[in-house]
Simulated scan of single mutants.
Amino acid sequence: MKTQENVKPVDIRPFAYAISLIDGKWKMHILFWLWKQDTLRYSELKRSLGNVTHKMLSSQLKELEADGLVLRREYPQVPPKVEYSLTEKGKSMMPILSELCRWGNQNVPDGWEQN
């Protein structure tokens, strides 16, 4: 049995920081689609995600941009054209996302469908 004296301190900050960047119902989905498609316009991203509201997608994109994972590129034209892509920091997370995809591929039950 471990006593208080034998317990090693755990620095949770790196884990908590990483999770804070991807915490949110749609952030990992957004990162996935930008990883697979390189650059997407807002409407293309919304269509790819399916059942996401405008308000939710907009707020999740703003958070991802503020955290330095997603680049928003706005073109001065009418109608407005906005494209999203991964930053270098965002791309550096893709090996983690790739491992999640690999794990999911190995463990998805037969007949499982996304809700």
Rank of each mutant, 00 (worst) to 15 (best):
K2H: 10
K2L: 08
T3G: 11
N6R: 06
N6C: 06
N6T: 13
V7K: 05
K8S: 08
P9E: 03
V10R: 06
V10I: 15
D11S: 10
R13E: 04
P14L: 14
F15H: 10
A16C: 11
A16D: 15
Y17N: 15
Y17F: 14
A18N: 12
A18Q: 13
S20Q: 13
D23G: 11
G24V: 00
K25G: 01
W26S: 08
W26E: 10
K27T: 02
M28I: 15
H29D: 14
F32C: 02
W35C: 03
K36H: 04
Q37I: 02
Q37N: 15
Q37G: 05
L40D: 00
R41F: 07
S43V: 08
L45E: 03
L45D: 03
K46H: 07
S48I: 00
L49K: 09
G50D: 11
G50R: 09
N51G: 12
N51F: 05
N51Q: 12
V52I: 14
H54P: 07
H54I: 14
H54E: 15
S58D: 13
S58P: 13
S59F: 06
S59G: 04
S59V: 11
S59T: 15
K62W: 02
D67Y: 10
L69P: 03
L71R: 08
L71S: 12
L71V: 03
R72Q: 04
R73P: 00
R73H: 11
P76L: 03
P76G: 02
Q77N: 03
